[in-house]
Simulated assay, not measured.
Amino acid sequence: MTNEQQRPLDGVQIELSPEEALVLFGLLSRWCEEGSAPTPEASCFESIAEGAVLHGLLADLETQLVAPFKADYSDLLKEARNRLKESWDYPTLRG
Score class of each variant (00 low, 15 high):
1 M>T: 15
4 E>T: 15
5 Q>E: 15
5 Q>L: 13
5 Q>P: 02
7 R>T: 15
7 R>L: 11
7 R>I: 03
10 D>I: 07
11 G>A: 13
13 Q>T: 15
18 P>Q: 13
19 E>V: 02
20 E>H: 14
20 E>Q: 15
21 A>C: 12
23 V>A: 11
26 G>W: 14
29 S>C: 04
31 W>V: 13
32 C>W: 11
34 E>F: 01
38 P>T: 00
40 P>W: 09
40 P>A: 02
40 P>H: 07
40 P>C: 04
42 A>V: 11
43 S>L: 02
43 S>E: 15
45 F>A: 00
46 E>Q: 08
47 S>P: 01
48 I>Y: 07
48 I>R: 02
48 I>A: 03
51 G>E: 08
51 G>D: 02
52 A>W: 00
52 A>T: 09
54 L>E: 11
54 L>N: 08
55 H>Y: 12
55 H>V: 06
55 H>P: 00
57 L>K: 06
58 L>I: 04
60 D>L: 09
61 L>E: 13
61 L>Q: 12
62 E>W: 08
63 T>A: 05
63 T>S: 02
64 Q>E: 14
65 L>Y: 10
66 V>A: 11
66 V>Q: 14
67 A>N: 05
67 A>I: 10
68 P>Q: 07
69 F>I: 00
69 F>W: 11
70 K>Y: 03
70 K>C: 05
71 A>T: 14
71 A>C: 04
74 S>I: 08
75 D>S: 03
80 A>T: 02
80 A>C: 02
81 R>Y: 05
83 R>D: 07
84 L>M: 15
84 L>D: 12
85 K>E: 10
85 K>V: 06
85 K>C: 05
87 S>P: 00
89 D>E: 08
89 D>I: 00
89 D>K: 07
91 P>E: 09
92 T>A: 00
92 T>Y: 04
93 L>K: 04
93 L>C: 03
93 L>T: 10
94 R>N: 10
95 G>M: 06
